[in-house]
């Protein structure tokens, strides 16, 4: 088992787009997505213009092109499935071509936003936008302990692997399920410790 958590993220030195303020950047990104969704299907010029805009943003962000393309490929099976259905159904290629183009532009925009905006900044934007406090606390704690738990799961799996040779599929499933159960038990114990620590620091 290999948790590919970090390979989904690109952590370079902050590029030019990363230094821009998060709020306006997210707003512009959302605007691009809305424009792409609303773009008329019969006039490919609109989507082409938006694609050009997003492509230049990718270049400006100095994210490695291969990384963006790889993420695009990983995230697109669902889009490809829908496009396939449309290609099979439709007489002209406009429908599925448009689906691919629109989804491609939107996916690239989201990948770009995610990889040029530190998540803590996104959280600040959401908080300023008036997201409920309980959701914000949940998000902040989740982000803080996401990588901790991923590492913990990996450690448990390594420990398991060092104690067993090849297991049958049934034992593999039971082993992984036990690992997940143990992970939840440890997460809930950690939550209690965190609450004690939060109280000690004057939370509420």
């Amino acid at each position: 088992m290999r948790l590919e958590l970090l390979s989904h993220l690109h952590r370079p030195q902050p590029g030019p787009l990363e230094r821009l303020p998060a709020g306006p950047k997210l707003l512009v990104g959302l605007g691009i997505i809305v424009c792409t969704v609303l773009a008329p299907a019969r006039q490919p010029g609109w989507v082409a213009a938006l694609a050009l805009l997003v492509a230049s943003a990718v270049v400006a962000s100095r994210l490695p092109i291969w990384f963006v393309l790889k993420r695009l490929l990983v995230l697109s099976p669902f889009v490809l499935g829908v496009a396939l259905v449309q290609a099979w159904q439709a007489q002209d290629c406009a429908a599925w071509g448009m689906t691919l183009a629109k989804s491609g532009v939107c996916l690239t925009t989201v990948i770009l936003l995610a990889n040029t905006t530190p998540f803590t900044h996104t959280l600040q934007v959401l908080r300023r936008a008036g997201a409920p406090g309980l959701l914000m606390t949940t998000l902040a704690l989740m982000y803080r302990y996401l990588f901790v738990l991923a590492e913990e799961a990996q450690r448990m799996d390594r420990a398991r692997a060092s104690r067993t040779f090849r297991a049958s599929r049934r034992l593999q499933w039971q082993g992984l399920a036990t690992l997940l159960g143990q992970l939840f038990a440890r997460a809930s114990e950690r939550a209690e410790r965190i609450y004690a620590a939060m109280c000690a620091r004057g939370w509420r």
Binding site: M142, Y145, L180, M198
Partner: peptide
């Protein structure tokens, strides 16, 4: 309250473990 955040982190990690 912290259990919500930790459960969310747990669920995210659990979704990445392949059977």
């Amino acid at each position: 309250v912290p259990l919500l955040g930790l459960s969310a982190a747990f669920l995210f990690v659990a979704q990445m473990i392949n059977f």
